[in-house]
């Protein structure tokens, strides 16, 4: 059933590609902004799904890498680095380094311990960001200059930024798709199903998990970079554990191992937040119980509607 999910992805990306041409007919910059927001969420969620869905590593601190990426970019911008490619390199290096340190420690454990440790490291990152007094501390930092592509401001707003984010989303989708089918992805799934067995097949499980953790962190970091470009603002709130929780919600709503699901989940969350939030100020009073009920009664959530073969954990 691989084909069906590819067709579905083609439709999804086709629609996203058309949006900037369709939406101005309804005269809405606001909607474009919402779609960018959802796509950024989807990028981070797909990267988290590589960990949870394929690797079986439930991280509750993934938003920290979005925060680290955003701050790496913001600090670069504040210090006069405006070339987006250079900022990308910086972001990848910084998130990669943070992931290497925290991952090597966190991956000494697994299961519940891993979950709690990633949560703790995420919180540690959050506190570190709040202590960056020179870059806004608790309040965050508004950025007066944004990244440029070879001196051009095309990637700063409007359709330039939209297509940059869409392109990144596609690259993430495609990259994780490739990884999931690759030799590496297969080892990762074997380690998820039975780490001892994978070890006895000759695989140093922790090493493979660490590499997956690095990749996921770096992708999340890139979404942070783009987030800065879109919001023109960074704050430690990006790295709170509630944001990590939101990412898990997106991944689970979309279905484990399903990249299309992660995109739908991201749009679902953003729409809920905006639409529900515009009608009822206290929308969380509804959202919270909906999550509980979803787990209790509709296991699989909206994912059930779009389950693809590899979403069930089968080898792709």
């Amino acid at each position: 059933m691989m084909d069906r999910s590819l067709v579905f992805a083609a439709i999804l990306f086709g629609l996203l590609l058309l949006m900037p041409f369709l939406l101005p007919l309804f005269g809405s910059e606001y909607l474009i902004g919402l779609i960018i927001k959802a796509m950024l969420l989807a990028i981070a969620a797909i990267s988290l799904d590589l960990l949870i869905g394929h690797g079986g590593m439930v991280s509750l601190g993934h938003a920290a890498f979005v925060g680290v990426g955003a701050y790496a970019t913001a600090i670069g911008l504040e210090n006069g680095i405006e070339n987006i490619l250079l900022l990308l390199v910086i972001t990848l290096a910084v998130t990669g380094f943070v992931a290497l340190v925290t991952g090597s420690l966190a991956l000494r454990t697994s299961g519940v311990y891993f979950l709690m440790i990633t949560l703790a490291f995420g919180q540690m990152t959050y506190f570190t960001l709040t202590s960056l007094a020179a870059y806004g501390g608790d309040d965050g930092l508004t950025l007066w200059s944004l990244a440029t592509l070879f001196g051009s401001d095309i990637v700063q707003s409007g359709s330039g930024l939209y297509f940059l984010v869409l392109g990144t989303l596609f690259a993430t989708w495609w990259g994780v798709f490739q990884i999931s089918r690759s030799r590496f992805g297969r080892v990762l799934r074997a380690a998820r199903d039975n780490p001892e067995r994978a070890e006895v097949m000759g695989y140093a499980v922790t090493r493979y998990r660490l590499i997956a953790y690095l990749i996921a962190a770096m992708i999340a970091g890139v979404s942070g970079l783009l987030l800065v470009q879109h919001a023109e603002f960074v704050s430690p709130a990006l790295a709170t554990w509630q944001r990590s929780g939101d990412l898990i919600v997106v991944v689970v709503l979309g279905g484990l191992g399903s990249r299309n699901g992660a995109i739908l989940g991201a749009f679902f969350i953003v729409i809920i937040e905006e639409v529900l939030g515009s009608f009822v100020h206290e929308w969380r009073l509804i959202y919270g119980p909906v999550l509980v009920l979803m787990v209790l009664f509709a296991k699989g959530g909206i994912a059930d509607l779009f389950v693809s073969k590899d979403a069930k954990g089968r080898a792709a």
Binding site: S182, R183, M201
Partner: peptide
Amino acid sequence: ENTAIAAQAKSGSSLRFFRNAA
């Protein structure tokens, strides 16, 4: 697949991210 992934450990690197292993 169980057998192939065991064989994979002994034939080339498993740090390949871009080819369909299946």
